[in-house]
Design a binder for these strands. Structure first.
Length: 388
DNA sequence: CATTCGTGGTT
DNA sequence: TAACCAAGAAT
């Protein structure tokens, strides 16, 4: 009823029962013969399925595998996760990105300990209340681990269905997901819901791809309206993203006479929340007239390093001596912004009252610390140049 | 609903 | 190279 309304409203005609049944059989047979052998497909433990689904959010399978193996080995149970320190969790997640994912998992693990006696909840509505679990992940875990006929609509599924049914809705809009969920409720195989959802995702990841798509190679090409009508190049409909904003920072690696480097903890909200970077001074914060319009060739101007020393003195109560020349310029691209880091090395002359946000770390201990990739890049730059 | 959250890979 | 993409959720 509500189901039909949503599909009707968007002028989507669902297949006949017979065709749906035929589709399920064709798709699942292809899946049985071609599915990838992935670590999280060798278990039915909802905890493991959960971990894998969180890691796989906006992240490629090949990237996830080693992280998944190490995470499950280190923290084999929900209880272990609930009792783990944030430092342990962040080190396990280092390099994966979207670090709120692992912080949210710890919150959710505590929810499960307190509200479900440490056992992963089976009710879909209960799963949805867990921190970090949204419509996709709730559907994925309940269908894969518990065999419930719940839709798990991700980017793959939307792309596949867009092409199969010639859907003109913009898949970048949040409201569109609900339409695809109603379609999946009609299509999903009630006997093998987890496999059905994963089959659609595998199809999207390996054959029904965003680029280099050859619809004639699809096991379900006979069901594909956009293939049969030769309109497949039009799908999916997806609005283009606005381009990233660029920010330039003077990045200062301060070294003390013990050979330690200085790092500053970032605010607990925003980009790289609560993580450590070298001192970073926004280029826009340098006052001198005209400097903002300097080209990158001019960053070596000695007036720059002098003003940086002044800013560091005022902001952190540190007296430092900068090199006149930067060690190098690094670039790091995030999903919605881009950092240009002009990296200077500095020597500590005097440290008065130390801010609690500052931390000295020796290069010999870098592998024990959790650093976001931009910090790793700076470390590598300094490390490399120190060898000579 | 639009934006904000990393990072690595491809084209 | 710049743009796009990858098993999304929180705000």
């Amino acid at each position: 009823m509500k189901q039909k309304d949503l599909l009707e409203k968007n002028k989507i005609t669902m297949w006949s029962e017979e065709k749906v049944s035929d589709f399920r059989a064709t798709l699942l047979q292809w899946y049985d013969e071609n599915k990838r052998d992935l670590p999280w497909r060798r278990t039915s433990d909802p905890y493991c399925i959960w971990v894998s689904e969180i890691m796989l959010q906006q992240t490629q399978v090949d990237t996830v595998i080693p992280y998944y193996e190490r995470f499950i080995e280190t923290l084999p149970t929900i209880e272990a996760l609930a009792n783990a320190s944030e430092a342990t969790l962040l080190k396990l997640w280092e390099g994966l990105g979207y670090y709120s994912r692992v912080r949210n998992m710890k919150v959710a693990a505590n929810q499960i300990m307190e509200e479900h006696q440490g056992k992963f909840p089976e009710e879909h509505k209960d799963v949805l209340t867990l921190k970090g679990i949204g419509p996709y992940t709730a559907g994925a875990v309940t269908s894969i681990a518990f065999g419930q006929p719940q839709p798990a609509v991700d980017g793959n599924v939307m792309r596949v269905l867009s092409r199969l049914f010639e859907i003109d809705l913009d898949i970048s809009k949040a409201s569109t997901r609900k339409v695809f969920e109603e379609m999946i409720r009609c299509l999903i195989d009630p006997n093998r819901p987890g496999d059905f959802n994963q089959a659609l995702m595998d199809l999207g990841a390996t054959i029904c791809t965003p680029k280099n798509y050859s619809p004639e190679k699809s096991p379900v090409k006979d069901f594909n309206a956009s293939y049969l009508n030769e309109t497949w190049e039009n799908y999916p409909v997806k609005k283009k993203k606005t381009k990233v904003t660029e920010q330039t920072y003077y990045t200062v690696m301060v070294k003390n006479d013990l050979g330690e480097y200085l790092y500053k903890k970032r605010p607990n909200k925003g980009v790289l929340a609560g993580m450590y970077t070298p001192l970073m001074i926004d280029r826009e914060d340098l006052n001198e007239e005209g400097w903002k319009s300097f080209s990158q060739d001019d960053v070596c101007d000695s007036r720059v390093s002098q003003e940086l020393e002044l800013i560091i003195s005022k902001s952190y109560d540190l007296k430092v001596k900068l090199n006149d020349q930067p060690k190098g310029i690094l670039s790091h691209v995030f999903s919605h912004l881009k950092w240009e880091l002009i990296v200077f090395e500095a020597e500590l002359l005097e440290e008065d009252t130390r801010s609690s946000q500052l931390k000295w770390i020796h290069a010999d201990r870098f592998d024990e610390e959790m650093f976001p990739v931009p910090t790793q890049k700076v470390n590598d730059l300094i490390d490399t140049l120190t060898l000579f």
